[in-house]
Each structure stands twice: as C-alpha cells, then as structure tokens.
Amino acid sequence: MKRHVLHPLWLAIGVIAAILIARQFMVPDDFGINGSSFTYGFYRLGDIQDWKNFPVKYEGRDYCANCHKDNYRSIRRSPHKHVQCENCHGPARGHPAEIAKLPINMDRSLCLRCHANLDYGNTARAEMPSIVDHRHHRRQQCAECHNPHDPRERFR
C-alpha cells in the first residue's frame, strides 16, 4: 500500500486504540448489562445505591408525635386529621438538632389551597367548607379566628 494511505490508517488505528485503552480505565466495573435486557438494563449498577442514599426530608407525623404530643392528639381528633404536620410546617429533617424551629406559616394562601371556593359541582372540592377570598375578612389571617389544629374551635 502507498504511504499516503498507510499513514492516516495507522493514525486512525492509534486513535481508536487510545480511546479503547482510556475506556478501560474510565468506565466503572459495574457498568454494563445489569438488568433483564440490554434495552432497559444497560447502566451503572452503583446508581441504584446512590438513589437509595438520597436523604429523606419528610419524616411523617409519627416523628412529630415524639415531642409534640398535644398538638398531635388535638389535630388527630379534628377534621384536619388527614393533614400531615409537615404539609404546613415544612419538612422536619434536621429538626430539632440543626433547625431549632420549623416555620409557623400563618398566610391565608396556605388555607386557601383547600378552602378557596371553586364552583365545581361534581368534584370533592365542592364539598369543602370554603370562602370566596375577597369577600371574607380580606385583611386578616385565617388563624386569627380559626385554630388550624382544630378548625371546629372558632373565634378562639
């Protein structure tokens, strides 16, 4: 073969060899066909553990009950019994060790998520006790009159 053909050929082979050698070092050992098929199971096995190690932020109401027994009991007896503490107070991860106090959100917008009146007769939304925002004590926070931990107890 002529030199002008051979030279680029050797160069191309060299580049391919370099890539294959680099690949040996750069691709982790657990990368490959790990699942049931190549189509859906071609991946790095360690990633499953990486996702399992992702930190949990929402601890659930039973975690809150460890200390806040009174609030836990009162809300469990109220119509708000299905609402998780963390829905309003935010995720409890790191509380109380790192975050001393979780936010107490008194904003109307929090209550209006469920209690703003929407005229959708055929949905469960229509059965919610609701207000029309601009017609119901617009300048006050809901919690000034209604106890969010037991909304039956009005005008406290």
Partner: peptide, 12 residues
C-alpha cells in the same frame, strides 16, 4: 375523584 387540587403533593 378524590383530588381537590390543593397542590400539597407538588410542594412536598
């Protein structure tokens, strides 16, 4: 049929 659109799921 139970969803009332409070969006708490999205926030969480």
């Amino acid at each position: 049929t139970k969803c009332i659109g409070c969006g708490m799921c999205v926030k969480a």
